[in-house]
């Protein structure tokens, strides 16, 4: 009897340990766990606010290939690096002054008004369309384009934003054509840009 009791208590201890392990182990963050988007459905019509404070409709992109990037103006490294690169690639591509449009959409509408995105876009000394909107509008566009973003507090009392930094490419018909990742080589990126501007 004594033995059985020991065995049973041991089983309880093991079960408790297993339970504790399951409860205490760090939860794997899976920011990429979003609604999977069918390739053909990426994008679609939207209305946001332009740098002039007026509504910007995706209808104005009709017939124009475009590259769209989501970021925020308080982002000092990845966002300007990505946008400056897109401008540089556009110059490398040649094919006229503006073979494709570059769109910058804020994922931080609480801090980025139309003035902020407009000023930020001017940094690149080449046409970049800065867009923002109400938090609800931004959420909607993020869903359409499969974009993740999340605010992360920093030590100075402010916050940074983790966000998808992949550039999405759309052709003249407005169809999703591909992406450009930050680590991708210029040649590969240029080949993709040639495809949308063809």
């Amino acid at each position: 009897m004594q033995r059985v009791r020991i065995v049973l208590w041991a089983a309880v201890a093991i079960a408790l340990a297993a339970f504790a392990f399951l409860m205490l182990r760090p939860v794997q963050e899976t920011p990429t766990r979003q609604q999977p988007l069918a390739i053909s459905s990426i994008g679609g019509p939207f209305t946001l606010t332009g740098s002039d404070g007026k509504p910007f409709s995706s209808a104005s992109l009709a017939g124009k290939p475009y590259a769209i990037f989501f970021g925020f103006t308080h982002c000092p490294d990845v966002c300007p690096t990505t946008l400056a690169r897109m401008v540089r690639l556009r110059q490398l591509l040649g094919a006229g002054d503006r073979p494709f449009e570059i769109l910058f959409v804020s994922v931080d509408p609480e801090r980025d008004g139309s003035t902020e995105v407009g000023k930020y876009a001017e940094l690149f000394k080449s046409p970049v369309t800065g867009l923002t909107g109400s938090p609800a509008q931004i959420e909607q566009v993020k869903r359409q384009y499969g974009i993740f973003s999340r605010k992360v507090p920093d030590s100075s009392g402010g916050y940074s934003v983790d966000h998808t930094s992949t550039v999405l490419l759309f052709d003249r018909k407005g169809d999703f054509s591909g992406t450009i990742a930050s680590e991708e080589k210029d040649n590969a990126a240029l080949a993709k840009l040639k495809r949308i501007t063809a």
Binding site: V78, H163, T164, S165, A181
Partner: peptide, 17 residues
């Protein structure tokens, strides 16, 4: 000024102190 690092994984970039 602060020392920061940007990291990117799975297409998502993060900036941390």
């Amino acid at each position: 000024a602060m020392l920061h690092v940007s990291e990117s994984s799975g297409g998502i970039s993060r900036m941390r102190e």
